[in-house]
Design a binder for these strands. Sequence first.
DNA 1: GGCATTTGCGAACGCCGTTCAGTTTTCCTA
DNA 2: TAGGAAAACTGAACGGCGTTCGCAAATGCC
Lengths: 228, 228
Amino acid sequence: MARAKRSAADLEAMRRRLIEAARAIIAEHGLSAVTARGLAAKLGWSVGAIYTVIPSIDAVTLEANAAELEELCEALEVQQAELTAAGAAPSAHIHAIGSAYLNFATARPRNWAAIFERDAEGEPPPWYQARQASLFTILERALSPITGAPHVTRRSARALWAALHGLLALSLAGHLARVADAAAAPKVDISGAPAALEDLHQHAQELIDTYLAGLEARLAKARGISAQ
Amino acid sequence: MARAKRSAADLEAMRRRLIEAARAIIAEHGLSAVTARGLAAKLGWSVGAIYTVIPSIDAVTLEANAAELEELCEALEVQQAELTAAGAAPSAHIHAIGSAYLNFATARPRNWAAIFERDAEGEPPPWYQARQASLFTILERALSPITGAPHVTRRSARALWAALHGLLALSLAGHLARVADAAAAPKVDISGAPAALEDLHQHAQELIDTYLAGLEARLAKARGISAQ
DNA sequence: GGCATTTGCGAACGCCGTTCAGTTTTCCTA
DNA sequence: TAGGAAAACTGAACGGCGTTCGCAAATGCC
């Protein structure tokens, strides 16, 4: 007979504390600083206690990433609902998504970089993929007034998402910001984070503009052909 | 007085052997399988011998990644020269770059994923950034007939590069296993993701088409304004 | 209070990157 | 050619990692 001393609710509370501790460590010192001993020290737990709550450290970082995704997702839902209520144009919806995504990611650069740093071996679990998919759905909803046909919507959303992802990933990895910054403003950029951020946003907005312009041109052409 | 027993050429040869071993291990088992002891075993060296040739394992993986970049760069240079000789259209140049990039990356999925997996903390050294920059330069050269002004060329090249990078990164990260055997056993995908290589290529070509169409539309509009 | 059972702990295991005292090999000199 | 100094090489050792597990402590029912 199992005598319950630690309720399911307690276990969930511990789980949340663990994940929040991981997010704090990532924010401060990056993904590689998330260790079993470090988490235990931060929480005042023993090392073994962690494993009564979650099966592995990798699962902790996965949950931390998922929490990041979820917060962005909620922020986007609210924002999109407001824009819809205000009767904003489709392109405004999409630009807003881009801005929010970049703001969110650059406000927590280490947490967001952690999402990209995950080991590529092995698929993420279905629930994690579903969480990513819900981000994707938001973009699809914003695009659908422009694209019309569902399969066009889906492919366009994927392409645009990937493009933004790439821009951000390169920027966070430090591969893009410095070169772009040096090109835009030939000043010394030792600590020019604000300038780089501005440039990143501008770059993203340009990319969205260009992609949408191309999309409309292609769709107009397709309509022209099917209309004759 | 220093008595040279191991010439600079010997040292370079050892270095190359080391890096090739690392690339082989990455190709077979992924970045995380590159370990000092593993490399030593594969090469028949002692563990310490590695450190007489290179300062850290991280430097080995960096060199392995750089070698990957360089091979792609060389392939692209040859390809672009051939297209130029054949008098191909600018858009053909760009589509060819996209195809070659994707082919290259999906032919060595683990090696290419390793490039994205590098720890985001700390910038790569200047010579590595320069190698990445030379990839950019190729794309810039291909874009310049379309874009005209240098700063437009530069920004467009970065945006397009980031977009392709994002598409590939998402594909490699979420669906590496499927990409690996998609050529052998193409299956129906479940979530609209480009699980199959062909679909990934098609997606990339669409993205390039759309981006170029948007670029031309935007440039035409800008010309119209400046011309009046 | 007795005691089965759950919970919690942290030393221990086998990895990792890196170092370095000790050994072997090499080559110049005498 | 013997001697010896210097370069080259080795692998055990160090601290840190994720994870496990025997054992001590705490718990709730009789």
